[in-house]
């Protein structure tokens, strides 16, 4: 009986260990513009602010281009393959997920860092 319990415990521990490894090894890194340029990996997360006035939509190809400035102050052009996500005007920050192709960061998915369900980012005046 004890051997069986130990066996189950070992199996569960091994399974959980595998899950942790899978998560840590395959989790997508957050990168800066310079790190994104040096990386060949798909699906890196590039976070930054949209530089005002650079956002343009090409409706014939249904793509959006804009310039993004990361925390270090570096900038890059970002091309998003789709229409701008709705509520982009409300976003405080964008996270572009993709990789650098040529001189631009091409993303297939874009997250908008928006006020949380329970927290506004605004501060009292």
């Amino acid at each position: 009986m004890n051997i069986r319990v130990a066996g189950v415990a070992l199996l569960v521990a091994a399974g959980l260990g595998l899950a942790v490894m899978a998560f840590v090894c395959n989790a997508s890194p957050y990168v800066t513009v310079s790190q994104a340029r040096a990386s060949t990996r798909e699906g890196v997360h590039l976070a930054g602010d949209i530089i005002p006035g650079t956002l343009a939509t090409d409706r014939s190809t249904m793509q959006v281009r804009f310039q993004l400035r990361d925390e270090a102050g570096d900038t890059t052009w970002v091309r998003y393959e789709g229409l701008p996500p709705a509520n982009m005007g409300e976003a405080t920050k964008v996270v572009a997920i993709g990789k650098v192709e040529g001189d631009e960061f091409v993303c297939r998915k874009m997250l908008l860092k928006c006020p949380s369900k329970y927290e506004s980012t605004k501060s009292p005046a």
Partner: peptide, 28 residues
């Protein structure tokens, strides 16, 4: 529950081990 909690903790694990932030994506 535990595996989800581990996935949610990856940014904390990375921060505490002094490594760059990572995030577990939906498909993972």
């Amino acid at each position: 529950g535990v595996v989800t909690a581990v996935g949610m903790s990856v940014p904390l694990i990375q921060t505490l081990s002094g490594q760059a932030a990572k995030v577990v994506e939906e498909r993972l």
